[in-house]
């Protein structure tokens, strides 16, 4: 079972709907027990960074602990931004610090928010982005972005007047700035690939280690 972390911000339901459509077992939850027993975690998020981090509260530590033990984690939009060390959105805020980099405003040379469908380019390989089909377009809606300091973590970028990093991965952690749950068939295939990755995650590993 994949757990979509329910921390009371924005449109978290759509990720569950997409998994349901794909026939993948997933549920929205903020119960520590369910999070511990899951095959993988999705950190969604439509909100301001500080608000989202506050709403996450004690779950932040639990997520980091689960990820350290090897459980796959997918961060989406603000969930992707939370993976980084800090954000400058409405004041300075600390993030989960799982990936090196910081969240900063998009340059005002283009319209803000960056809203709509943009095509992605590959900076590296990661099985989550396999079999996307013909289209490389994904749906974006954001005013801030994560500047990635760990160059090896950067997997995808998109052109928005500059090379905007839009997907990162490190070990079992993946973050995408776009919304796979709202990006039609190619978005659904990213979620399907994530579900496959979770299947490979050995169940009970965490409990055995304790």
């Amino acid at each position: 079972m994949i757990i979509v972390i329910d921390y009371s911000v924005g449109n978290v339901k759509s990720v569950c709907n997409a998994f349901e459509h794909l026939g993948v077992e997933a549920a929205l939850s903020n119960e520590p027990e369910q999070i511990r027993n899951s095959a993988g975690l999705v950190l969604p998020g439509v909100a301001a960074f500080g608000y989202a981090m506050d709403a996450l509260g004690d779950l932040a530590e639990l997520i980091c602990e689960q990820v350290a033990a090897g459980k796959p984690l997918l961060g989406i939009c603000v969930g992707h931004q939370l993976l980084f060390e800090q954000s400058a959105e409405h004041g300075a805020h600390k993030g989960l610090g799982l990936i090196k980099g910081k969240v900063i405003p998009l340059p005002r040379t283009q319209r803000i928010p960056h809203m709509g469908w943009n095509s992605v380019q590959f900076a590296g390989y990661w099985p989550l982005f396999e079999d996307l089909g013909r289209s490389r377009y994904f749906y974006f809606a954001h005013s801030y972005y994560a500047q990635v300091d760990d160059r090896q973590a950067q997997i995808l970028y998109t052109d928005y007047g500059f090379e905007l990093p839009c997907a990162v991965r490190k070990n079992n952690i993946t973050g995408v700035q776009f919304h796979p749950e709202k990006s039609g068939p190619q978005g659904l295939s990213v979620l399907k690939n994530f579900a496959k990755m979770c299947q490979k995650y050995p169940k009970g590993t965490l409990n055995d280690r304790k």
């Binding site: 924005g10 439509v46 909100a47 608000y51 409405h90 005013s143």
Partner: peptide, 8 residues
């Protein structure tokens, strides 16, 4: 906007 983000 403060609660859900400008983009929404």
């Amino acid at each position: 906007a403060q609660r859900v983000g400008n983009q929404c």
